[in-house]
């Protein structure tokens, strides 16, 4: 009986308290990094700005939602098509023809790279290697 009581009392005690608490505090602080790093302030969600030319055109080559999620894959397909098959013509679902060219076609309307492309790219922390070759304000010959 008295042995049991003794045991119960001992169970409440924490061994190596200093080390364990230090470890647990470290765990909590590291795990909570995104919480204290942002200090509770959400950065505003970027709104890409359309140029007058883009506004006037009303529609891109595909619907907006699809362009938002798939533009990078379209550009990749275009690159393969142009560089490997010498096919420069893209026909969209409403039978409109487009020149498969980032510099001459896309960036013609969206000539404001910083306000259009970079805004979301920076927010999502992506650095596309398109810009390694294709420059800001292009007009390729």
């Amino acid at each position: 009986m008295s042995q049991n009581n003794h045991h119960d009392k001992e169970e409440k005690k924490m061994y190596n308290k200093g080390e364990v608490i230090t470890g647990l505090v470290l765990f909590a602080v590291i795990f909570a990094f995104p919480f204290w790093y942002n200090m509770g302030k959400a950065a505003p969600v970027p709104e890409p700005v359309l140029t007058e030319q883009a506004k006037a055109a009303k529609e891109c080559i595909k619907p907006k939602a699809l362009m938002k999620t798939d533009h990078m894959q379209i550009l990749n397909d275009w690159r393969n098509s142009v560089a490997r098959d010498r096919n420069r013509i893209y026909v969209n679902s409403s039978n409109k023809e487009f020149d498969m060219s980032l510099s001459n076609n896309c960036l013609d309307c969206h000539s404001n790279k910083a306000e259009f492309c970079d805004k979301c790219h920076t927010y999502a922390s992506v650095s596309p290697y398109c810009w390694d070759c294709h420059i800001d304000k292009p007009k390729e010959k």
């Binding site: 942002n38 302030k41 959400a42 939602a65 938002k68 927010y123 999502a124 992506v126």
Partner: peptide, 14 residues
Amino acid sequence: DVIGAKQLAMGLVT
């Protein structure tokens, strides 16, 4: 939509 995903994630941590 990655921007939407980040908006949701940022909302959670802030």
